[in-house]
Design a protein around this nucleic acid. Structure first.
Lengths: 344, 344
DNA sequence: CTCGCGCACTAAACCGCTCCAGTTCTCGTG
DNA sequence: CACGAGAACTGGAGCGGTTTAGTGCGCGAG
């Protein structure tokens, strides 16, 4: 089968290809009647613009790029990324824009190289930058190249557009929920500290703990994997002043914690309450099912694309704050049982 | 920052741009010395090929396309797809090829439209077709268009290259494992019957049940979601001749089944053994952890890309059979407790 | 009636690369 | 020593669009 070009349309409509171009792009220079005729023949021929040709003549590639710089097995287990992509897609589909996906391990150098290549090849019109770190070189690079980009999160010192989640209200709600239930000693198992959003949660968590007058509010390091989630849980439960509730930075670690608690013979939620973060379908799988802080990840992805489109179109740099949250109460949180603390 | 073109290189190296093109693409027509010089200047200038220009002049776009035609929330929970993509990436990265991802719901029409667009726009060099159905229109379409494609699975009547999993040995091993443990009444909760691979598993499962002389070997329909997995499990356990072991078509349903069994007060593995299919990190999360049939999904993705590359290069149509498997025994399978069958 | 302006439309350059058709030069051969 | 072959390299068309610089023409104003 042969591809149709605007030359075919021009020939069949009896006009020049410039006229066709004008008509198809809604630009002035053709009469309404001619425009109509051209559009009709284009439709009849089943013509579709060649993105290669368009990209070459300086227009859009109609593709945006996304690099997932995480360990592949983590990506597989973690629903976050697919949800984000799904959210992006809802917004991309309306404008027939594609998503170029690249998975790399945690190799910053390779990631930078990819943006370089995408830019110089004109393969993408813009990129979404995930998992920001303090002093993130990617922001500098895209700014230098002039590659439109949107940050998922806030980065000090950068004036790139961004979509960021204000964790504070959600964290207040999570800790507040535990406080309401009577918990005085809480803990939080966090993801990689290199990420800015992790640090923002640190701050929000500490502030919330203060607000609700927690006796103790420790933080334990982990890396979002089930393995480390379980390990952190065991460490916390083994400590002399074990918390009565733990908040996890993602769902996977929380699910894993249920297993770990089970192994230790610790009853949930009587002896230990657990709150997961994000709320994916995963949270409904364990027993007890996980109480989770639901975040609008799809919405985040969609917003990122909207902002990115503005940036690509050369609009003013805007940023969007996401402060919405919803605490989905399931069975993993409850009043602490004072007769607990078997180990000490 | 300005983009470098082969004209820049040609000028600086004092040759024509044709020579540059030859040198950069490893084609004959330039002396080793000149080639070396050209490569050096290209390197010095930090030149990268414009994929748009390449695609336009009939060469590769260096992008392959993948459409995920599934419900987004299922995609998020199901590790399969990300693992497959990760596998594809390992193979793609070596050749600097990108992956254009499209997520659509289960709307066959939209999916076909996407291939059409990709083809007419020359956006992708080829595509990987997932989740084949009997009488799959996608195969016909790509064949008609001449869009290189590789099938993930077997499709009767199509001579497109394919990478397919031979389920029989794995199914034999799974059912055999249950037989060894003393199970006589098994069941299987399957995914969507519209998929060919589901039907192939049906056949393999029935054959295995026969081989090992199972008393009963029912099949229950589900849709890969945790919800339906739990529902199917409850239905099976409620039936008068409940099975003592269930094999699930994916991990998510199996994890969910553990929860459902727990809710019904059924002990695993004493009263019910469970085998999950695929084996992702998910299987280690529940208690008891899931015995799972591990499939080499990464390898599948990588193989698909290799075959696709051959197809793009116009090589002969080859197909690869995947027959490897590994039964990872965890705690969800065991000898059936004869004192069970509380409900009947 | 003529001039000039604006609208509808065309011709052609251009984007960066590939590749075919030449051109030049070298070298072996009869 | 002329000739042909082949290697090394150049020029330029073409890919499918966009965009700029025209061109022709109708029509209102003077």
């Amino acid at each position: 089968m042969k591809r149709r070009t605007i030359n075919d349309i021009a020939e069949r409509a009896g006009v020049s290809k410039s006229a066709v171009s004008f008509a198809l792009n809604g630009k002035p220079g053709v009469s309404p009647a001619t425009r109509e005729r051209i559009l009709a023949t284009a439709e009849a021929l089943g013509w579709r613009p060649s993105s290669a040709a368009r990209a070459l003549s300086g227009a859009r590639a109609n593709v945006v790029g996304l690099v997932l710089a995480r360990n592949p097995s983590l990506l597989a287990a973690e629903p976050y990324f697919v949800r984000l992509i799904a959210g992006m897609e809802t917004e991309l589909r309306t404008e027939q824009t594609g998503l170029l996906l690249k998975m790399v391990g945690e190799e910053p150098q390779r990631e930078l190289e990819i943006y370089r290549r995408w830019w110089s090849q004109r393969q993408v019109d813009g990129v979404v930058l995930l998992d920001l770190r303090v002093n993130d070189h990617r922001a500098d690079l895209v700014a230098e190249l002039g590659l439109p980009a949107v940050l998922l999160g806030r980065l000090r010192g950068s004036n790139l557009p961004s979509v960021w989640v204000d964790t504070r209200p959600a964290m207040d709600a999570a800790v507040g929920h535990l406080a309401d239930l009577g918990h005085r000693r809480v803990a939080r198992v966090r993801g990689m500290r290199a990420f800015i959003h992790t640090r923002e949660r640190d701050t929000a968590y500490r502030a919330a703990a203060r607000t609700f007058g927690m006796e103790s509010a420790v933080i334990v390091d982990a890396d979002y994997t089930g393995e480390q989630g379980a390990k952190a849980t065991r460490a916390l439960l083994d400590s002399p002043d074990a918390p009565s509730a733990i908040i996890f930075d993602n769902d996977v670690m929380a699910v894993s914690a249920i297993g770990a608690a089970h192994d230790l013979g610790i009853r949930i939620p009587d002896e230990l309450s657990i709150i997961a973060w994000d709320d994916s379908p995963l949270c409904e799988l364990p027993r007890p099912a996980l109480t989770a802080m639901r975040m609008d990840i799809d919405g985040l992805g969609a917003a990122a694309v909207r902002i990115l489109r503005e940036a690509i179109d050369g609009g003013p740099t805007t940023s969007i704050r996401f402060g919405t949250w919803e605490l989905v109460e399931r069975a993993s949180t409850g009043r602490p049982d004072e007769s607990r603390r078997r180990r000490s």
